[in-house]
Write a protein that binds this DNA or RNA. Sequence first.
DNA 1: AATGAATGAGATTTCATTCAT
DNA 2: CATGAATGAAATCTCATTCAT
Lengths: 200, 200, 200, 200
Amino acid sequence: MSASSKPHPRTKPPEERRAELMHAAERLFLRNGIAATTIEQITTTAHVAKGTFYLYFSSKDDVLAALRVHFAQDLLQTIKNAVDGQKSWPDKLSAWASAGVSGYIDAIRLHDILFYASSPPTREGLVDNIIIDHLIGILQNGVKAKAWSVDDARSTAVFLFSGLHGIVDDAYRSSKRVQREPLARRLQVLCLRTVGLSGD
Amino acid sequence: MSASSKPHPRTKPPEERRAELMHAAERLFLRNGIAATTIEQITTTAHVAKGTFYLYFSSKDDVLAALRVHFAQDLLQTIKNAVDGQKSWPDKLSAWASAGVSGYIDAIRLHDILFYASSPPTREGLVDNIIIDHLIGILQNGVKAKAWSVDDARSTAVFLFSGLHGIVDDAYRSSKRVQREPLARRLQVLCLRTVGLSGD
Amino acid sequence: MSASSKPHPRTKPPEERRAELMHAAERLFLRNGIAATTIEQITTTAHVAKGTFYLYFSSKDDVLAALRVHFAQDLLQTIKNAVDGQKSWPDKLSAWASAGVSGYIDAIRLHDILFYASSPPTREGLVDNIIIDHLIGILQNGVKAKAWSVDDARSTAVFLFSGLHGIVDDAYRSSKRVQREPLARRLQVLCLRTVGLSGD
Amino acid sequence: MSASSKPHPRTKPPEERRAELMHAAERLFLRNGIAATTIEQITTTAHVAKGTFYLYFSSKDDVLAALRVHFAQDLLQTIKNAVDGQKSWPDKLSAWASAGVSGYIDAIRLHDILFYASSPPTREGLVDNIIIDHLIGILQNGVKAKAWSVDDARSTAVFLFSGLHGIVDDAYRSSKRVQREPLARRLQVLCLRTVGLSGD
DNA sequence: AATGAATGAGATTTCATTCAT
DNA sequence: CATGAATGAAATCTCATTCAT
């Protein structure tokens, strides 16, 4: 009873084990793709036995879903923080563009793997949806404040979001070391133009 | 003397067999996803034996590649035809938007399946690339003709293309029966604004 | 806080825990079969942790063996009591038939699961053996007392026992609600005839 | 149709392959029990690859069902042939007993494995049923011909059948080399007594 | 050119059992 | 005594691909 002062209990707290498994899965999905990743690789990477995986997840799709949720919440928080730090509406939109570029550069491949390379039923676009919904709010409030004019907030939000995603994706494809600053500035211009502002 | 009166000739012209197999694969990929589609399902759907598949394609990835090429060429031709029919640059850009919306509405799910839900190596974005390259040409020629101003043709093209894709995708998700006209008009406005034109 | 006021004492008397585990196992074996029953189901049903099972039994086969012993002793006692209550030999044999029918009706499925649906080594027929041995005694003593004639006591005992089992089994298969009385009477006739008595 | 006169096609006729797999399964079930037999053992024994098993059966239970049907039809035929060769009713019943003993001695363990050591749903007793139904017919016709008296044909048939099975089973348990003749004669006596005949 | 039986590597999943707390 | 997280051997089943006919 007295003795054991080990900081590394053999039996880890459930969240930690779960997180380790998710982390291992994420790395392998990124490196080899989802289909090519086996449960065994995941458990080996996480330094646990195969059966342990099934103590925390019911299947490969189950980890995938958990990773999606985690990714979405993370990114939304990053963007919200950046946007809320700005006063004027154009600045908010610019901040949205910068934070979005940044967030996606950090995780573009993960995003694509999690949200595209999956089975039809899950193609719902969970992150995309919560990010887009947030942007719709910004656009509508900007309209109310007469900061800009927008015909249809949803279409515009979808357009901007997709544009952001495409630009980061393209930059990533061209070279793995992406320059955030110029990319962010170019996207800011495009975003401002899209809501009818000059963009310079 | 005997002249083939069979309704189902045993030996079909190679292109026809190939096309039938591709068609079968396309339908099954659309319905069930790529991973869930087996070679046997493809050959059964195409009314041939399993071995016959390997007479025309070397693997599952091989049909996938063939479908990608076919899809890309088809769509580019549609867009080119529409754009070339216009005189003024703004009209060309509007035509690009309309034809793009149309082309993608017809095949949005197929596009996503062919170009996203695949293994990393093929994630190159074949269609996207040729469509984007074509649009870059339009944007640059419009700049030369002082029809509009564009900072970076590539970024802008990627942005527009991604926006187009996203908007059609979103419309498709909302309702399977998409209204082309309003969608096309909304996109035209966004495109024109993006290149610095008023868009009305 | 000191004195145990818990309604569910953590530590129960060993026999009670053991009995609870056996009871849980019995119910699950009956409902789902032996192979389909997991240790975890047993411990969950008995409201203990998985490891606790191994404090009382060394393996799944071990509970099975314990259940077999318990079942056999129970049934033999029932039959003995009935037989010993009779004076004449024909009455003893009739009582054997009745008590056997009754005992088996109560537990026919359990019997079959415990004694048939197991691995070869345990197929020894533990109950069957002790019941049959008891019946052999009755038959031999009846012969000595010139109550009936029997060629080979063992064969006859096996024949009667198997017939009893078969008849109850068949009745059970036909309808889950078995009528004991008519069944017992029919079996009595068959038993008496088998030892050369008229049976009416 | 001219050339190929090969007697040994590399690809065997389906029935032959199927029979080989069933035969391999039977041997292994007998030697090691059902649960302890793996699909891989079956295919190895049958000299085919693992996947081939699934070309002919959908699961282990599926072979089991096929073996049951085969066993039942086989045994019934044997008994019928013996019974039909006799004129008088007592001789028919004696023939039934002999053929039954013989048939079961040859396959007692197989019978038990196929019909007892299985999951609850299949415990229906397929052979037992068709053999019993056949015996019910014999008993009833014997009654009509005033060859003997029987209260309830079904009960009696079940009783006799179970007795037969039990006696063979017991003899088998006592020694693996069973003497057919004495066993058959003893059973004949018991059968005749059961229908009210003297049995000598 | 066409067939489809056969292959067999490999993936997912289960669960009896152990053992540190 | 009791716990339940962790283990990992083993079983089932799938399916892309081959090849003899």
